[in-house]
Write a protein that binds this DNA or RNA. Structure first.
Length: 346
DNA sequence: GTCCC
DNA sequence: TTCCATGCGCG
DNA sequence: GGGACCGCGCATGGAA
């Protein structure tokens, strides 16, 4: 979605460090309004240190980077980039495959037993997932989904977020948020522990295996999300599932009709009713807009995230979430001039 | 690697 | 069977 | 000089 930081080469040691810093540097540079004419100038920006400034100077003077040339020439980096085109294959799996002698998608197709479910689907649809979704088609998907959800149960509320909601002419996937009055963050009828703010330790879940989730013992969320997914699968719109839990479905869809030949990535999140507007705000982005808005919230003595808007006590401890009746209300609480989604493309 | 303490 | 760590995708 | 670096849902596989 953001300016591709020239396909992060993850060749050498601890590349998590590498990618996070260089991503940050690339982001800062790409958002900088003026033309960078020297490493020294770039050095003033947050996230640009000595090394990167040096590289900028080298590039400005020679038109290329020796180190980058070397990385691009590396077979392993080429193979890693190739295998990473497949959804579900990241650096670790790519390395494992390369170690096993698999370096191309063609070789990968010959070894289906090496892939899990997500990766298998990622390989099947690799080309289709790489093509962008024209706004027209995204709109048709939106109409289809909203109609189907409404006919299932009129109490659902649903919004397509992401770059589509910001008016983009094309999108990488469709991100649908849904909510239902029977599903709230107090977990009244779920009996499951739920967090209202995400500020807790953030330990991983252990959600019972999907086998269980599909069966009888399903939480309120699981049923509400599952019903939507089932309904969307009924008419063949949803074609595959990459993953599905109680609150998030990640899968594949395709509209009926001969003009729609390409499978598209579809995500559906079920959000607690009382957190819906903050979630829509958050998942509409852009990332940069979210950062700015959260920073503004802090200045106003609030903390803002996808779960809610909460006042900060003098001690810095967040209080109870402010009840929010619309996306616009969040802006109002923060005395932040309202911006329609189309103007959040920062 | 960069930022910040 | 349950718990836990790791990999991955994502805004 | 030395630690922090976004946080979270889901799948998976090995440990308990």
């Amino acid at each position: 979605m953001c300016a591709d930081s020239s396909s992060t080469p993850s060749t050498f040691s601890s590349d998590s460090k590498f990618s996070s810093t260089s991503r940050k540097a690339a982001s800062v540079l790409s958002h900088h309004p003026e033309r960078i004419t020297s490493g020294e100038q770039a050095r003033q920006l947050a996230g640009i240190g000595r090394k990167i400034a040096d590289k900028i100077d080298e590039f400005l003077q020679t038109g290329h980077l020796r180190k980058l040339d070397k990385i691009r020439a590396s077979d392993v980096a080429v193979a890693t980039a190739e295998l990473s085109r497949v959804s579900g294959i990241g650096p670790a799996k790519a390395r494992q495959l390369i170690d096993g002698g698999v370096r191309t998608l063609e070789e990968l197709r010959a070894r289906p037993e090496l892939l899990n479910r997500h990766q298998t689907l990622g390989l099947r649809y690799v080309t289709e997932f790489e093509s962008r979704i024209p706004r027209q088609e995204a709109a048709a998907i939106e109409r289809h989904v909203l109609h189907r959800v409404a006919e299932l149960d009129g109490r659902y509320r649903a919004t397509v977020c992401g770059s589509y909601r910001r008016g983009a002419e094309s999108s990488g996937d469709v991100d649908l948020l849904i909510t239902h009055p029977d599903y709230t963050s107090d977990g009244a009828e779920t009996g499951r522990r739920r967090t209202v703010d995400g500020a807790e330790t953030g330990r991983g879940r252990s959600a019972a295996g999907s086998a269980t989730a599909r069966g009888s013992g399903r939480s309120a969320g699981g049923r509400l999300l599952g019903a939507v997914v089932d309904h969307l699968s009924q008419d063949g719109f949803v074609t595959d599932t990459l993953s599905q839990g109680d609150s998030k479905f990640m899968g594949v869809c395709r509209l009926p009709g001969a003009q729609y030949t390409t499978h598209r990535r579809l995500d559906i999140r079920l959000v607690p009713h009382d957190q819906y507007h903050c979630a829509v705000l958050y998942f509409t982005g852009s990332d940069e807009f979210n950062r700015q808005m959260r920073a503004h919230a802090l200045e106003q003595g609030f903390t803002l995230n996808e779960y809610g808007l909460r006042p900060l006590g003098t001690t810095g401890v967040a209080g109870e979430p402010v009840p929010v009746g619309s996306e616009r209300e969040v802006f109002e609480y923060l005395q932040y001039p309202y911006r329609p989604p189309e103007q959040r493309n920062l």
